[in-house]
């Protein structure tokens, strides 16, 4: 009796997994397939629904027409800057929230939670006005400063959560020995929580890597465009070199996909921890 029941459930399970895999994976498959198509096929004769490796040379030739290297260079600068600043400030905030009692601790926690609710677009115009005054408009450094406001709290929540799990006894003797607290943090605590620091680094890095709205608003100079703005400039254009654009989008996505898959569990823990505390 039980066996008769089990076959349809197993079949249903397989079909469900199959459907989900198609839904989740198809857009990436299609990105690759489109990249390996000829533009004449895409716009006229119809797209071949599988990747044609024979078109790889023509795709590379077309890709060379896009300033992809410069875009990715700018993207990397923004991402690295966002990561460094987020980790330094996030470690300070995370350590204080975990270890210290101080006036305004609750307020700081609340404000950091607030940043996750505030839409980027809401502070866009005042930041723009402020950057004009400070001479930070049209500069990658200014873009980093804007990004860190959103990625610092996430990094801080992850780091706080990790430090909470470290027993205080480990740093106690160093504190009693009057070792400066900042050294306690950098030389004792941070090495212990290295995996969480790596997760915070990946999140900040890709927050900077993926960011679009600030970059599109603050950078007028085409030479400063990161890949997100460069690629988005093809949206709504006629005569897009579509296969090259898809290839570039794929290259732009690949690092994010690889790293997100590597640290998926840590990211989830960090984001939900920040939300729970609010």
């Amino acid at each position: 009796m039980n066996n008769v029941h089990q076959i349809p459930t197993r079949l249903l399970h397989i079909l469900l997994v199959l459907a989900l895999t198609v839904f989740g994976g198809f857009p990436i498959y299609w990105m690759a397939t489109t990249a390996l198509s000829l533009n004449s096929e895409l716009y006229n004769s119809g797209q071949v629904p599988w990747p044609q490796l024979a078109n790889l040379p023509s795709m590379i030739a077309e890709l060379a027409q896009l300033p992809l290297m410069r875009w990715l260079m700018n993207t990397s600068i923004v991402a690295v800057g966002t990561t460094v600043l987020s980790l330094v400030l996030g470690a300070l905030a995370g350590y204080s929230l975990s270890r210290f009692k101080f006036h305004g601790k609750g307020i700081l926690g609340f404000l950091m939670f607030m940043t996750q609710v505030v839409p980027e677009a809401l502070i866009l115009v005042p930041l723009y006005a402020m950057f004009i005054t400070l001479g930070l408009l049209n500069s990658l450094f200014g873009l980093v400063l804007a990004n860190v406001g959103f990625s610092l709290p996430v990094a801080a929540f992850i780091i706080k959560g990790a430090i909470d799990a470290v027993p205080y006894e480990i740093e106690e003797s160093a504190v009693i020995d009057n070792c400066p607290r900042i050294s306690v943090l950098t030389m004792i605590i941070l090495p212990i929580i290295a995996p969480s620091m790596a997760a915070a680094a990946v999140i900040s890095f890709f927050a900077g890597w993926n960011e679009y709205l600030f970059a599109a608003t603050f950078l007028m100079d085409r030479d400063l465009w990161p890949a997100s703005v460069g690629l988005a400039s093809f949206v709504g254009q006629y005569e897009t070199p579509l296969s090259a654009v898809m290839a570039a989008a794929l290259i732009f996505s690949l690092p994010a996909v690889v790293f997100f898959l590597l640290i998926q569990r840590k990211i989830v823990a960090g984001i939900t921890a920040g939300a729970v505390k609010g």
Partner: peptide
């Protein structure tokens, strides 16, 4: 891993491929 693609792909890249789809 495949099911996580949608979450990992940057917004701009996602927008481009969905515009084409």
């Amino acid at each position: 891993g495949i099911l996580l693609f949608g979450w990992a792909v940057p917004n701009v890249a996602a927008a481009l491929v969905w515009l084409w789809i």
